[in-house]
């Protein structure tokens, strides 16, 4: 009888696994299909508007050539510069912040963290109006939007210290103390002991800081204020999909999407491991 029950369980298990495989296949298709569509439509030559089929009747690189002749080059370069600068500067700022709040116990630490928690509850959108006017006074809008966006993005990045602080919290404090007893200064502890151990979180921070600007839309649009030379890819490509432009630019948008997504996705897949580590740690620590 026991044997029979065992057999029953086994076939039940097999049945449920089959159901799961079917579900996973459906999920994979649903999740990938839109991206497959984008790629297919980017090679469509016969017309530039939305149509009721996905496989092009005439294949070609026309849309990619059109990208090259449009302002897209400039937008791409703008975004790349912002992403690169953010990756370096935001990483430095966030690591300073999170390391300090994780390791040092000073009088204002508690109040400071509570203050930043409250500050984070204000919608960031609220401050756009004044930041725009300040940047305009500094001459960092429109064609000069790139340095302006870098400045604002980097300056307020200290607030996002939570994930990396969670990571530093997991490095045992006894390491620091041992080195301090041996006469190392605080700076030497950071430079020689903590940083080598913190490689995963450094890579995570660089990766997220680099990827952020590729999707940045609202503030970038605000700062560029209709000047194409100051657009990033999100703002520029959005302008192709407005009701009066979409029939001319739809397939070009698809081609642009491929060009933007490809390098970021490849980079992401290579560094996936670190991203997962960071994201999981951050969620657990809150």
């Amino acid at each position: 009888m026991n044997e029979k029950r065992h057999m029953g369980l086994k076939s039940l298990n097999r049945a449920s696994n089959t159901v799961i495989y079917i579900l996973l296949i459906i999920i994979s298709i649903v999740w990938l299909l839109p991206f497959v569509f984008i790629v297919l439509q980017s090679f469509r030559v016969e017309n530039t508007y939305q149509v009721g089929y996905v496989i092009p009747q005439q294949w070609g690189l026309d849309n990619y050539i059109r990208l090259w002749t449009s302002d897209f080059k400039r937008w791409y370069l703008n975004t790349f510069i912002i992403a690169l600068a953010s990756a370096v500067l935001i990483t430095i700022i966030q690591l300073c912040m999170s390391y300090t709040l994780s390791r040092f116990r000073f009088k204002l630490r508690g109040p400071l963290m509570r203050f930043m928690l409250i500050l984070g509850m204000f919608p960031g959108m609220l401050t756009m109006i004044i930041l725009y006017r300040v940047l305009a006074d500094l001459g960092l809008t429109q064609t000069n939007a790139v340095p302006g966006l870098i400045l604002v993005g980097v300056a307020s990045s200290g607030m996002g210290y939570y994930v990396s602080k969670g990571f530093f919290d997991t490095i045992p404090k006894s390491l620091d103390e041992a080195a301090r007893v041996d006469g190392a200064t605080r700076f030497q502890v950071l430079y020689k002991i903590i940083l080598p151990l913190a490689k995963p979180i450094v890579i995570y921070t660089i990766l997220t800081a680099f990827m952020g600007p590729w999707g940045d839309y609202v503030f970038a649009r605000y700062v560029a204020m209709g000047t194409s030379a100051g657009y990033n890819v999100a703002v520029g490509m959005y302008s192709w999909l407005t009701n009066d432009q979409i029939n001319n630019w739809y397939t070009t948008f698809c081609a642009g999407g491929v060009i933007v997504a490809l390098p970021v996705t490849i980079l992401f897949l290579c560094l996936q491991k670190y991203y997962v580590e960071g994201v999981t740690g951050g969620a657990v620590k809150g």
Partner: peptide
């Protein structure tokens, strides 16, 4: 399975959101 899903995290949201938005539009795909 994981990689298939994770790949979609990497693609900048404005591309996927805008594309899907137009896909469901009145004269969309």
């Amino acid at each position: 399975w994981r990689t298939i899903l994770v790949m979609t995290v990497a693609i900048p949201q404005f591309i996927s959101l805008l594309y899907v938005s137009k896909m469901f539009a009145r004269n969309g795909l």
